[in-house]
Computed example of a mutant assay.
Amino acid sequence: MHSDSSSAANAANTVLFEDVSKRFGAEEKSFTALDAVDFAVARGSITGIIGRSGAGKSTLIRLVNGLERPTSGKVIVDGVNVPDLDEAGLRALRRSIGMIFQHFNLLSSRTAFGNVALPLEIAGFDRDAIRTRVEPLLDLVGLSDKRDRYPAELSGGQKQRVGIARALATQPKLLLSDEATSALDPETTQSILELVKRINAELGLTVLLITHEMEVVKAVTSDVAVIDKGIIVERGRTFDVFTRPQHPTTRALLSGLPGSKLPAALASGLRPHKTQGGRVAVRITFFGRTAEQPLISQLIQTLGSDINIIAGTVDEIGGEPYGSLIIAYAADDATCAKADEFFKANGLVAEVLGYVS
């Protein structure tokens, strides 16, 4: 039974972390970078791992390609436990894993074509085979006309596209992205993320994306794990985690997204307790069917009083509609009770932010 369940898990997932811990240094001065991590990367998904600097993200990704070995636990990639591999096994594994980096890591002495060709040359491909493989990749990333340009002649976005093409050269099953958009401007970041989504869809490639940027996670991932001080504190479908964050770290990371941050004037005037004749400020989260209904007008009718709309945004997470609206209404007990009943009846997530005079 255990063997069957393990086989099923391996078939469904490209990467499995099973009770993985990683410590650095001698026992007395050791530092725990990862602590009992259990996490799966579904085959064919774009999965994000997000956390602050120093949370353990880069250590996690280095375990996948064998650049680090866990102190304990299993790191299973495509059915193989990476720590069990010898050097020959690791070389074979790394040919099935593509990697894109924050700072591109291109060779300045090689053209775009030459950089993409490098892993194929190392693998022993002949000239014709390399050309047959590299030219379609340059076309895929939109750089056919830049094949003979050197990195110094390319923009940041173009350099990253070369890096992506190079990562795909060995036809990997898994693509690792370590802060790949952190050095890019927002417009270029968006174009790179669109490219990653297209590669995932067209090639069926599993993508494991490490980032500290919630906007990146929101834009491309289907699943996400939140890591804090080496521990996975929350995980699930990106839409579920973003619309119903359970852990304080997740809420803190989400607070910087548009529509989540309170206007300065409101934030400075919020009080923790209600005052006579004051109003309560509430953030309402809309998703699914509720994002398309006239709920505010219905809420006004239910409460029988005015509502101030303070801030709001409408967006998509994983192709599903999502909205966040900050409103204020009378803070008396009767009005608040009616509002709470309305929110529950309509499947809305409501968070009291504080009270204003």
Score class of each variant (00 low, 15 high):
residue 119 P to L: 11
residue 325 L to W: 09
residue 146 K to S: 15
residue 126 D to Y: 07
residue 21 S to M: 08
residue 328 A to C: 09
residue 325 L to R: 10
residue 136 P to R: 11
residue 226 V to R: 10
residue 27 E to Q: 14
residue 194 E to K: 15
residue 187 E to F: 11
residue 132 T to P: 00
residue 219 A to W: 01
residue 132 T to H: 12
residue 262 L to Y: 06
residue 179 E to R: 04
residue 87 E to I: 09
residue 150 Y to H: 15
residue 249 T to S: 12
residue 335 T to W: 03
residue 232 I to G: 01
residue 23 R to F: 13
residue 116 V to Q: 02
residue 327 I to A: 06
residue 49 I to S: 04
residue 325 L to D: 08
residue 249 T to Q: 06
residue 126 D to G: 07
residue 91 R to F: 02
residue 142 G to V: 11
residue 111 T to V: 08
residue 12 A to P: 04
residue 296 I to C: 10
residue 95 R to C: 00
residue 201 A to P: 04
residue 103 H to W: 12
residue 258 P to F: 10
residue 319 G to H: 08
residue 311 A to M: 10
residue 207 V to K: 02
residue 150 Y to V: 09
residue 117 A to T: 00
residue 179 E to W: 01
residue 106 L to Y: 09
residue 130 I to V: 14
residue 24 F to S: 11
residue 229 K to C: 14
residue 75 V to C: 10
residue 309 I to L: 14
residue 14 T to D: 09
residue 92 A to F: 02
residue 161 R to P: 05
residue 214 M to V: 03
residue 203 L to F: 15
residue 345 A to K: 11
residue 267 A to G: 02
residue 2 H to W: 13
residue 190 Q to G: 15
residue 312 G to H: 07
residue 54 G to A: 12
residue 12 A to I: 08
residue 186 P to K: 05
residue 294 P to M: 08
residue 188 T to F: 06
residue 178 D to V: 04
residue 74 K to Q: 15
residue 212 H to F: 01
residue 21 S to K: 08
residue 33 A to P: 06
residue 334 A to Y: 10
residue 221 T to R: 04
residue 11 A to K: 13
residue 92 A to C: 01
residue 174 L to T: 06
residue 8 A to V: 09
residue 344 K to L: 14
residue 18 E to C: 08
residue 141 V to A: 00
residue 281 A to H: 00
residue 273 H to L: 12
residue 328 A to Y: 03
residue 350 A to V: 10
residue 308 N to V: 09
residue 46 I to C: 09
residue 8 A to K: 13
residue 214 M to D: 04
residue 66 G to Y: 05
residue 226 V to K: 02
residue 117 A to C: 05
residue 320 E to Y: 08
residue 194 E to D: 15
residue 336 C to T: 12
residue 147 R to D: 01
residue 155 S to F: 12
residue 135 E to V: 11
residue 89 G to E: 08
residue 184 L to Y: 00
residue 29 K to V: 14
residue 280 V to C: 12
residue 122 I to R: 03
residue 69 R to P: 01
residue 278 G to Q: 01
residue 246 Q to R: 14
residue 18 E to D: 13
residue 255 S to F: 03
residue 154 L to I: 07
residue 95 R to S: 07
residue 47 T to Y: 13
residue 78 D to W: 07
residue 1 M to W: 11
residue 107 L to K: 05
residue 72 S to L: 06
residue 45 S to V: 02
residue 119 P to E: 12
residue 284 I to Q: 05
residue 288 G to H: 13
residue 19 D to Q: 15
residue 146 K to P: 03
residue 102 Q to Y: 05
residue 190 Q to K: 12
residue 272 P to F: 03
residue 125 F to M: 13
residue 355 Y to V: 06
residue 73 G to T: 03
residue 350 A to N: 00
residue 304 G to A: 02
residue 106 L to H: 11
residue 299 L to F: 05
residue 195 L to N: 04
residue 217 V to Y: 04
residue 111 T to S: 15
residue 264 A to W: 08
residue 57 K to W: 12
residue 48 G to F: 02
residue 211 T to F: 01
residue 271 R to F: 03
residue 273 H to F: 11
residue 167 A to D: 02
residue 126 D to V: 12
residue 240 D to I: 03
residue 99 M to F: 13
residue 90 L to K: 04
residue 195 L to F: 02
residue 225 A to Y: 06
residue 310 I to S: 04
residue 58 S to Y: 07
residue 247 H to Y: 02
residue 337 A to W: 01
residue 225 A to Q: 06
residue 213 E to R: 00
residue 134 V to W: 07
residue 78 D to N: 15
residue 305 S to K: 14
residue 177 S to F: 00
residue 149 R to G: 05
residue 91 R to K: 14
residue 20 V to C: 05
